[in-house]
Design a binder for these strands. Structure first.
Lengths: 322, 322
DNA sequence: GTGAAAGCGCTAACAC
DNA sequence: GTGTTAGCGCTTTCAC
């Protein structure tokens, strides 16, 4: 339409030098009139990138992840990248099918905020594009990893309960409390703190695979039935579990924090809504998202970026439940 | 590698008939060994679809939308579609840039759960691919629309407050309470209910542009300062606003529901966590997501699908705050 | 400065 | 049943 060749048009689109000003303008004008948009498919095929970053999360309905994704997307958008969100739903096969999209070149890189498959399997995909672990990690892996100090987070929370005078501390985990499984860093923070106080783990007070408000309610019921052997505090590892626990404990007539201190984790919006409001360990979600996506962008643009680990500190938010 | 031509390979990938069993197996074997994955870019370029559906939401951190997206993605995944989530952040230009992806053929269709630009502009994109409005609508548009009966939802909520004996009902809206703007259906449900009781709108008790927990707290403070002219009930239009309102009202010594009834909207998980727990209007989010994505899938696969409007009814969830 | 032409990986029409 | 080939829209040499 501008009476020029495709190559000149391409040069204009890609901001090449050596295009005379008048022709550039003629082309831009024609593009506007035709409402022309270059086909991403063709550009991809030609060896360019898709300008899409994939993010794997367990579930987007978990506020921790929706806020994380929110921040990642905000920054990606500023850098002309789209985000594709995948929910692994703790399903190995589903996660694998997302990693395959890297092979298909549908996405340029993957940020994994959840890991279902084992290390070797995941690492085998790194040759198709960058993979970054976000708030998850493998034992000594070459995969770039941005991680919060979960061990210290748990340690801080437990230490606070101990300093307050609690000695019978129950502990909830989203994992299975095994040596090398999920949440192992938090587990060791827990161990470290109680060991410092010369205490031992009471297996009756360990609750595994805890995630939801309903899980929290269940715990309240179990604790209520323990009679003499009740703990005097619960580290829940999740504001949602803490919230459910508080609501149900109140219904059962357990006074919080007098009879039972409850410590959350994350500092989600709901933490200030319960009565009593939840004392919790705040994770710096925005900073986590920012460092992760900046690292990804730098890899994709083959520049350097040194994550600022200083910003990734957990903090204690003291409210009423402990 | 299998010693066969590309076309035969293509036929195997696309499950064509007329491929002998032995060659098919040879090809599948080679594909496995090479860890081969067809390039989506090339397939797209060849005129196929991208197998991606875009969803525009205001913010993914709003639980209403994260649950909606969760359901849509679940069903899309079952049908071999990926989801690309866009956050418009109530930004016209951002929304426009997402609609352009339809032109670039990066996505096959768009589900709009938020509308920032005007009708003509949005409709101009329908020639590039299907657009469906989800829980939003234009006045008499040809764009397929799946919508909940917001008018009835608001009516139910207000009616309940009136039946309980409240006569001084404050009303919050996420929009601006104008005739044709956002949330106009809810506004008319409100009008309908109070008119039936022979009441009038008190402009002092109308709160516009209310969305967050903090907004709710502000309302509590304003109401507290009204002295004699306090309302005896608030229809918040959002569980988050209701939650903030309840927390702050309690701090200010306003008894809920005795002095002030509070009605939420959505039935989000947090609705049962506050004290008192929130009485609210439940939106059938899963059904909404399901009908919407099924309609989209049917359009993309050029089959027919008749949305089941029966399932899209709002219900009242009575707890303690009203 | 600009244009012609090759080729990215795939599918489908056509030939055999 | 299988192979050959054109062409999707773009970028990038290579000529001029």
């Amino acid at each position: 339409m501008a009476g020029l060749s495709v190559s000149t048009v391409s040069r204009v689109i890609n901001n090449h030098k050596y295009v005379s000003e008048d022709k550039r303008e003629a082309i831009l004008k024609a593009m506007k009139e035709l409402n022309y948009q270059p086909s991403t498919a063709a550009r991809q095929l030609r060896g360019q990138s898709s300008q899409i970053i994939g993010i794997i999360v367990p579930r987007i309905t978990n506020p921790f992840f929706s806020y994380l994704v929110d921040e990642i997307q905000r920054i990606a958008y500023q850098n002309d990248f789209q985000i594709m969100i995948f929910q692994s739903n703790e399903d190995k096969a589903k996660e694998a099918s997302f990693l395959e999209l890297l092979v298909k070149k549908q996405i340029d890189g993957i940020i994994m905020c959840a890991i279902e498959n084992d290390q070797d399997f995941v690492e085998s995909f790194t040759r198709y594009g960058p993979i970054i672990l976000c708030n998850e990690s493998f034992e000594s892996s070459s995969i770039p990893t941005i991680i919060l100090d979960q061990m210290n987070g748990a340690y801080m929370g437990i230490k606070y309960l101990l300093d307050k005078g609690c000695r019978k501390i129950a502990y909830c985990t989203g994992g299975l409390f095994d040596e090398n499984g999920k949440d192992k860093s938090r587990n060791s923070g827990f161990h470290k703190a109680i060991t410092e106080y010369g205490l031992k783990v009471n297996p009756e007070w360990i609750f595994v695979d805890q995630h939801t408000i309903d899980d929290g309610k269940q715990i309240a019921r179990k604790i209520s039935e323990m009679g003499e052997h009740r703990p005097d505090a619960v580290f829940t590892g999740s504001d949602e579990v803490a919230a459910g626990l508080i609501v149900e404990a109140k219904r059962l007539g357990i006074a919080i924090p007098e009879e039972l201190s409850v410590m959350g984790f994350d500092d989600q919006p709901l933490a200030e809504l319960t009565t009593p409001a939840i004392t919790t360990v705040k994770q710096p979600i925005q900073e986590l998202g920012r460092e992760t996506v900046n690292l990804m962008l730098s890899i994709l643009q083959s520049s350097r970026y040194e994550p600022d680990r200083e910003k990734l500190k957990m903090t204690l938010v003291i409210r009423e439940s402990a």
